[in-house]
Structure formats: C-alpha cells, structure tokens
C-alpha cells in the first residue's frame, strides 16, 4: 500500500476545501438554515406533529441527507473531473499507485467533507428546533456510510463526465428531485396509496427513512432493508469504479 500517496491525495483534496471554505461549507449551511426558517419555524408552527415529533424536528434528518447527497456527489465528481479537465491527471496515472489507493484518497476526502458538513448542519439545526437523537452511534455510522457511498457515486460521475454540463446534470436533474420527493419534508404515509407505492421505487426514500429512524426511532420502510439497499448501492459503485480503472475508461487511451 502506497500510504504516502493516499495521504498526499487526501490532504491535497481537503486543502482545496479549506481554500474554498465559504463555498464548500458556508453555502450549504446557509441554504439549509433557510429551509429551517421557512419550513421548520414559519410553516411548521401551524403543522401537526408527524410520527410524534414536531414538524421542524421531523425535517432535520431529511435536510441533512439532502445536503449530504448533493455535496458528496458534487465534491467527489469535481475532485476527479478537475484534474482530468486541467490535464494534471497525468501525474496520478503515472504514479506508483493502485486504483484502490486513488479511490481512497479522492473519495475519502470528499466523504470527509460531507460528514463534516452533515455535522455542521446538525449543529445549525439545533439552533432552530429542538430534537433528540435516539441512536447516535447508528446515526454516525449511517452518515459516514451514505457520505462514502455517494462520494463514490460522484467519483463515477466525475470520470464519466466529458464536459461541465454532464457534471451538473446528474445532481440537478436526478438527485435533487429524488431527494425532494424522497420524504425530506413529509412522511410517505401522508401520501395517497398509489403514490406510496410509486415512491418505493425512489431509492432516496430508503436513505431518508433509515436516517430518520436513527433520530426518532420511527421509519417509513424497514430499517434493515434501507441499510441493505445502501450497501448494495455502495457495492455496485465499487464494481463500476473497478471496471473503469481496469478498462481505462475515460482515463487512459
């Protein structure tokens, strides 16, 4: 294992975040705060409790997931797309480093940022609403698992994209809508029956449901099913990445 290389990539990528602190941490925190103000405080005040928690508290896990997914994908995809675009990728390709080490460096850095971001949003949420965390250890585990999985997904997008547009298109047109429709702001039991069934095809439903369970002990769908789905998605992403490196897909001619 070329640990110096993994460390070099990891620290280099984190340094990039540090440099663009405003963009990488402050922006998502501010936008999430706005959600709390609008949905939690303003609208939530006149809403009933959901699953026995106040509406403002109910949306906290969903909002964290929303930020976690979009930021994991955009950080990781940007992290690998940028050197491809600038041409500096030559150095990584010519280094004595395995695909796994490359992935750990880039994806690890992106996931670290997301986890930090998730925790910062969690703290921010505490300023607006009262909530408790029923299973803090599971909450952390799930936070890390999701951050890593979607950073890996973002990494794949960053290798697949051959233009800035493609880099934006998956997060904007697929992930954000799925997250909004995935129960961030409502329990799917509040939907008409037909929509409840349709919603189950949205993978993000499982993520949000399980994450909310770690907070309040209630879930829309079976928690183990959710964990299982996340792990399956993680393994699928790993499979795609390993194929990409083996074939040299969009990395090597």
């Amino acid at each position: 294992m070329n640990l110096y290389a993994v460390r070099a990539i990891y620290l280099f990528e984190l340094a990039r975040t540090w440099r663009t602190l405003l963009q990488s941490i402050a922006t998502p925190v501010i936008s999430t705060s706005l959600y709390f103000v609008v949905f939690g405080a303003a609208i939530g005040a006149s809403m009933n409790q959901v699953h026995g928690v106040s509406y403002g508290a109910f949306i906290v896990p969903g909002l964290i997931m929303l930020a976690l997914l979009t930021e994991s994908i955009s950080n990781a995809s940007f992290g690998i797309y940028m050197p491809r675009y600038a041409g500096t990728i030559y150095e990584v390709l010519s280094a004595p480093i395995s695909p796994l080490e490359i992935v750990i460096g880039y994806v690890g850095a992106a996931a670290t940022k997301s986890v930090i971001l998730g925790l910062v949003i969690l703290l921010t949420a505490g300023l607006f609403v009262d909530f408790e965390i029923a299973h803090p250890v599971w909450m952390l585990i799930y936070l890390v698992l999701t951050a890593f999985t979607f950073s890996l997904f973002g990494f794949i997008i960053g290798i697949w994209a051959d233009g800035w547009e493609k880099l934006q298109v998956v997060p904007a047109l697929i992930v954000t809508p799925l997250t909004f429709l995935g129960g961030s702001f409502y329990s799917i039991s509040m939907l008409p029956e037909v929509w409840q069934t349709i919603t189950l095809f949205n993978p993000v439903v499982y993520l949000i449901s399980a994450f909310r369970w770690t907070f309040y002990g209630v879930a829309d769908v079976n928690v183990w099913l959710s964990f299982g789905m996340t792990v399956v998605f993680l393994l699928a992403c790993l499979g795609v990445v390993s194929w990409m490196f083996k074939s040299g897909y969009r990395l090597k001619n």
Partner: peptide, 25 residues
C-alpha cells in the same frame, strides 16, 4: 510532459510536496 499543465490554484510548495507523496516517498 509536453503540455504545460498545473494545479493553478496551488502554491509551488504544495504541488511539489504532493508530487513527492504521490510517488510514495
């Protein structure tokens, strides 16, 4: 390499240090 490619937002020191690490030193 033939083309002039650099991480333009990095400092000279950071980029050289990165290269050394990348090659396992």
């Amino acid at each position: 390499p033939q083309e002039l490619v650099n991480d333009v937002f990095e400092t000279v020191w950071a980029t050289v240090k990165f290269s050394r690490g990348l090659f396992g030193k």
